[in-house]
């Protein structure tokens, strides 16, 4: 749509600007302040320059949690996206079942995040949980509170359970926008179901899938509550993701300098991702 140039439109945006600025800029400046200062208590602060940034970037602990974070994010993307597309393709196209499917599938998305963690905790506990009992009954030695491998399995299954529906919903919305005539034309040409998927359905889903992938990428990078309730980062440090580690440093040890430096590095990563997201989305809109 062609837009009119009107600089007075700033007044329409002003309330939003003031509220978000209060919430975003003041806390961000607090973090910046902490990140360049050293304190020995009593609210006495000294200039420390880039000391904390160097410390964080060099620390093995940060590398380890960043590595775990990347492993988590890429694992869930590799599972959720193909699975979501497959389910969307198999869903009914019309009738009462569409609504039933959509409502049931969207349920996990509306559960408070700590309840998601709690649900999976009691579902997977080896002695009293249904999943734990089932796996142990099959002769698999499963205990997610003791074995790191099992903890990872549970963590990833939980995220797949929680968020695959998002991919399904978006992919389904993309599929629903394909006119019936396309399929009829494909039928006349005698196209195989693979050809229909590759040349009709996939291109139509490209835009929504971009949104799905990037949303999942960024949100999984921010994940905190669910793994915190499920495993608390354990056993040991084996499932300590980036934000869990950050909260441990900031609120647990009250190391404000390193925590602030870590926050800023973390935030820059997110900012970069958001920029990629925005550019891709706007490019899609122009086409």
């Amino acid at each position: 749509m062609d837009k009119t140039a009107n600089h007075k439109a700033w007044f329409f945006v002003l309330p939003v600007l003031m509220l978000v600025a209060f919430n975003a800029i003041i806390p961000l400046m607090t973090v910046v302040n902490y990140s360049v200062q050293e304190t020995f208590g009593d609210n006495n602060f000294f200039w420390a320059g880039v000391l904390w940034f160097e410390e964080v970037l060099r620390s093995e602990r940060f590398h380890a949690s960043l590595g775990r974070q990347l492993f988590f994010t890429f694992s869930i993307l590799a599972i959720e996206v193909p699975l979501g597309v497959a389910i969307a393709l198999a869903m009914p196209r019309k009738g009462i079942w569409v609504s039933v499917c959509l409502v049931l599938m969207a349920m996990p998305l509306l559960i408070p995040w700590n309840v998601v963690g709690a649900i999976w905790n009691i579902f997977a506990l080896p002695n009293i949980g249904l999943l734990g009992q089932m796996l142990n009954g099959l002769g698999i030695d499963y205990n997610f509170t003791r074995q790191p491998g099992d903890a990872w399995f549970t963590l990833i299954t939980m995220d797949v359970w929680h968020w695959t529906s998002l991919v399904v919903l978006l992919a389904y919305a993309g599929l629903a926008s394909i006119p019936e005539a396309y399929y009829q034309a494909a039928k006349i040409d005698g196209a195989s179901s693979w050809a229909i998927f590759r040349y009709i359905q996939l291109p139509k889903m490209k835009r929504v899938l971009t949104i799905a992938v990037l949303l999942r990428f960024m949100d999984s990078f921010n994940i905190y509550t669910e793994p915190f309730v499920l495993t608390g980062g354990g056993p040991g440090n084996s499932t300590t993701l980036l934000s869990i580690d950050l909260v441990k440093v900031a609120l647990g040890q009250f190391d404000l300098g390193p925590a602030a430096a870590m926050s800023l590095i973390y935030f820059l990563v997110i900012l970069l991702l958001s920029w990629v997201f925005y550019t891709l989305m706007m490019r899609g809109e122009e086409q």
């Binding site: 975003a24 806390p27 905190y224 934000s243 900031a250 997110i270």
Partner: peptide, 13 residues
């Protein structure tokens, strides 16, 4: 970017 901001970063400030 504010939609994407990690809550953990903002908790203390």
């Amino acid at each position: 970017t504010n939609r994407m901001a990690p809550a953990a970063v903002f908790a203390l400030p």
